[in-house]
Design a binder for these strands. Structure first.
Lengths: 134, 134
DNA sequence: TTTTTGTGTAAGAAATCCTGACACACGTTG
DNA sequence: CAACGTGTGTCAGGATTTCTTACACAAAAA
């Protein structure tokens, strides 16, 4: 609750985020451009990332490495955002998942997606950064 | 243990530390100059502060507001540093406290120091930052 | 009163970051 | 196959942030 406030506090310049995520500046800016992350800005227009932002970037990176394109990642992330705010019934969740797997995933990700891990929530879930911080 | 590693990771530029501590850049640099904090540096020589650094600065600020001068603060902090690394017997701790109170405090802080709170460890202890982060 | 402390402020230089813009490999589409 | 779309690298010019050094000064200490 107050926790979310702390995790969304703008703290890191892009250089730190680069070292934390091993993404390039170009990648990070490109993801922002496509609204996968929305870092805050200083008065002088410099990006400032929160813990949530960094977590999100790590998640994006993990999905990228699975071969998912940005459109797909956007879907996944927006679904997760919904889950965080609203409480869902079992049906809702299945509905949302159908939305992703039928309309987008099967078509554009072919079979690469489900090699090995079945994209279970566990591996995609938040808190990646908790390996570094607490 | 691994926790200490995370808390000592250089993450924040001075601008963020300024907003987090409400200290001026001048103050922060001055404290560094007198070795109360030792922030890391980027390749380009910019300061990078860790959680521990910010905690320490908040502690410094709190002590400053109590009217303690830098020499006294340095003593207090160095004592705390020792406590963190080594395990002490009861005697050791009393010894250290005597070291501070007799040699320095009574002489240079006069009576201002003990007005109200008796400088109990509780109020000086670390983790101030935990009010903002976890 | 003279000195020391702690902080403000300013200047010039250097580092970091910003937004385009162009390139390009690869995969997709017509 | 040719044309297009996607995701990333890289470079340039400009803006912002930070650095050090130096001077100033009020308040406290000597």
């Amino acid at each position: 609750m107050n926790d979310e406030y702390r995790r969304s506090m703008p703290l890191f310049p892009i250089s730190i985020v680069i070292s934390l995520t091993d993404l390039s500046a170009r990648q990070i800016r490109y993801y922002e451009q496509h609204e996968l992350v929305k870092p805050a800005r200083t008065e002088g227009n410099r990006r400032l990332f929160s813990f949530n932002d960094v977590d999100r970037l790590l998640e994006i990176k993990s999905l990228i490495e699975k071969g998912i394109n940005l459109a797909g990642i956007k879907q996944v992330l927006s679904m997760q955002d919904e889950e965080e705010t609203q409480e869902h019934s079992e049906e809702d969740i299945q509905e949302a998942q159908k939305d992703l797997s039928e309309k987008e995933l099967r078509k554009m990700l072919k079979n690469e997606l489900f090699q090995g891990n079945r994209m279970g929530k566990s591996s995609l879930r938040q808190g990646e950064l908790s390996r570094f911080f607490h």
